[in-house]
Design a protein around this nucleic acid. Sequence first.
DNA 1: CATGAATGAGCGTTCATTCAT
DNA 2: TATGAATGAACGCTCATTCAT
Lengths: 225, 225, 225, 225
Amino acid sequence: MVVVTIGLTDRLVGLVANLMYAENLSEINWTMNQGITTRDKIMEAAETVFSQKGYYETAVDEIVKQSSTSKGSVYFHFPSKESLFLAVMDHLGNRLIRRVEHAIDRQSKPSERLETALITTLETLTKHKTIAKLLLIKGYSMGETFPRKRQEIFSRLAALIKVLLDDISVAKKRREINTEVAAYAWLGAISEVVVQWIENGNPHPVLEAFPTLRALIFKSLDLEE
Amino acid sequence: MVVVTIGLTDRLVGLVANLMYAENLSEINWTMNQGITTRDKIMEAAETVFSQKGYYETAVDEIVKQSSTSKGSVYFHFPSKESLFLAVMDHLGNRLIRRVEHAIDRQSKPSERLETALITTLETLTKHKTIAKLLLIKGYSMGETFPRKRQEIFSRLAALIKVLLDDISVAKKRREINTEVAAYAWLGAISEVVVQWIENGNPHPVLEAFPTLRALIFKSLDLEE
Amino acid sequence: MVVVTIGLTDRLVGLVANLMYAENLSEINWTMNQGITTRDKIMEAAETVFSQKGYYETAVDEIVKQSSTSKGSVYFHFPSKESLFLAVMDHLGNRLIRRVEHAIDRQSKPSERLETALITTLETLTKHKTIAKLLLIKGYSMGETFPRKRQEIFSRLAALIKVLLDDISVAKKRREINTEVAAYAWLGAISEVVVQWIENGNPHPVLEAFPTLRALIFKSLDLEE
Amino acid sequence: MVVVTIGLTDRLVGLVANLMYAENLSEINWTMNQGITTRDKIMEAAETVFSQKGYYETAVDEIVKQSSTSKGSVYFHFPSKESLFLAVMDHLGNRLIRRVEHAIDRQSKPSERLETALITTLETLTKHKTIAKLLLIKGYSMGETFPRKRQEIFSRLAALIKVLLDDISVAKKRREINTEVAAYAWLGAISEVVVQWIENGNPHPVLEAFPTLRALIFKSLDLEE
DNA sequence: CATGAATGAGCGTTCATTCAT
DNA sequence: TATGAATGAACGCTCATTCAT
């Protein structure tokens, strides 16, 4: 396939598009470099501001300013402040879960899959502070809607971990442990350590906490270290 | 100093107060034995409403109504809505910590002290849903002040647990574990399990989760079960 | 009964009120000259502004400014802009109807009662332009609520007139006329004449229109003029 | 001048227009025979929506949706929402007046012309509820512009009726009646009866009200019935 | 001419806080 | 001390209008 890159004024882009459509030339692939969509600019700005100030302390006007768009645009793309917030949550939640899934997929040994899940979660939350802040701290308390979304994301993560635990648990024959509870417990443990790091910078840096978390988990599951 | 005890109706209390104020007699000290103080009525009402709806979704008027006092009273006893919220947090946090301390004091064996701390925390959060809701869920995201208070309470609890872990750890010679991190991890594990229970009723009931939590902790610390 | 008029500062008024209440002296009648209540100031301002600009073109802030109170006060006394509007409508509607009723009461002869109703309605709408404007012109088109209120007021007036017509109709034996329809027709005739006067100053002045209206009505009902 | 008639799809129409614009070929005159013009679709939709919800409660977007055109089209054909509204009013007003004029033209006897005017007005308002709603109810209160338009239409109708009354009045020698006032009065009577019918369904159906209205008018003008 | 994303002024409503009684 | 009317800054949301394609 030949890729031709040409520069066109916005006006001509429209004309060419029309002509191509009229002449049924739609198989020509072209990618319009529209820079970043308005919707994306808003999402990004919302992620930034929400994670800095939380839902209630963020005024829609701040997101508008941060995204250099307009109030009208925000409400054109999202029906309400709340739905914008949830869209951001969804986006970040999916990002976190997808990363963990990908990382796990590359491992085959059960105990290594578990370790990978743990370290990836910790790393992602660490590198993308906005995810951590929104998911673990700043979003709370938003009426009925936020907790539900938070639950959704956590339960998807917990389900992931539960499967890993089941694999190991089965292999290691420890029946007195409810793997669902254990999954949530480990999620909670990781969350709290990350929260401490974010709020206090204590302990410093987070990944120093990893050996301890890893040891606790492996020991608790009778896995050889 | 002469102490005069007189019984006055609520109405007259106000009247006398007005007169005293008008006549500049404010040096007269009086203690009203109202059984339940207005301040306490407000605190109680605030605890109820805040834990149901969270900080931002609670209007001061709702606390006024719930406490059958008045707006003026709230702002006489507390300089702001925020300080009222923090007072409630303090109160509940202290209650939780005191309970754990008392429970621990009655045990001497390190591993039993740890188990007691765990079970008492879980029980208190379970029996006093308002504590759990405010501490773990509804309070978040309140600007800068709330997280600080949440940290304060958590760090006091973590310090408590750290000591217990140190005792055991020392006894058991496991040096690769940072007991501070471990303390926060266990707090997080407990919190998350409680949060799941509150939000989802999953798993049901919470105390059923205890064996799993206990097993995880003991195993992870090489304690005999 | 002895009426004592004393001037008290606002502060003392409160104290005296308290004392009187405490001592069960509530039978003493006193009228506090509080000037005009905030609520009344708001109602008055709303009447003025609404009748000048109509419901939709009036911003609550204009009523606030006109009443020299505050936005908070408006929403303390009325749950919404709409309810404030309806309160004004009620007030003016009642005023109009009460006037007509009082005027009628002073007449005994049926045809004179009818004439009195006609002339009083015309006069009131003429003298109190705000009533006319709100009732006949500026209020319309307010979703579902206003028309219902307008109907309520008109139907009360129509019922009044219907009774008058029934008295005469019976006396004069004209059965082919439905008095309810006739009542609304006469109301409509009067309204339209007033509306023309308000909008066009045509014909000028309204009361000049009275002989014509009177003649039409009397003729149409076979009354001697 | 050469007129070329070609068939183009909608899409191509836009494309050609763009090209013409880009090439400054705007002097080429073309007439698209679209059956129903976009302008007409908008007018029709506006009539429907405005008469259902009134001016202020109608958003331009609703008219766009109802007409299955676009916001751009609305603002291409009409400079503003207000002017669109007035265009609709004009259209409906003209329709009403034309009907009355045509009906009158077919009668020669003065009293029959009057009766025809009365009945045609009533019938038109009844059969075309949108006219009635916009003219008598939903349009009101639109700043300064609407009342002026409403006045214009009413005064044209009144002028029509005045002539009829003059004919009769002259014939019947009743000088004390100002025919202009009478014309407005009768218009108001009819309007109010129609309004009652629309709002309350009372009396039911409108045309049942006709004998009463007719009797009132004829009697009031000393016409034989 | 048609389209619809973008704009921003404007508005109704909330609510923490004050203060005269 | 208790009360509750009064205050006004702040905020979420709407919608008429514009303009690039």
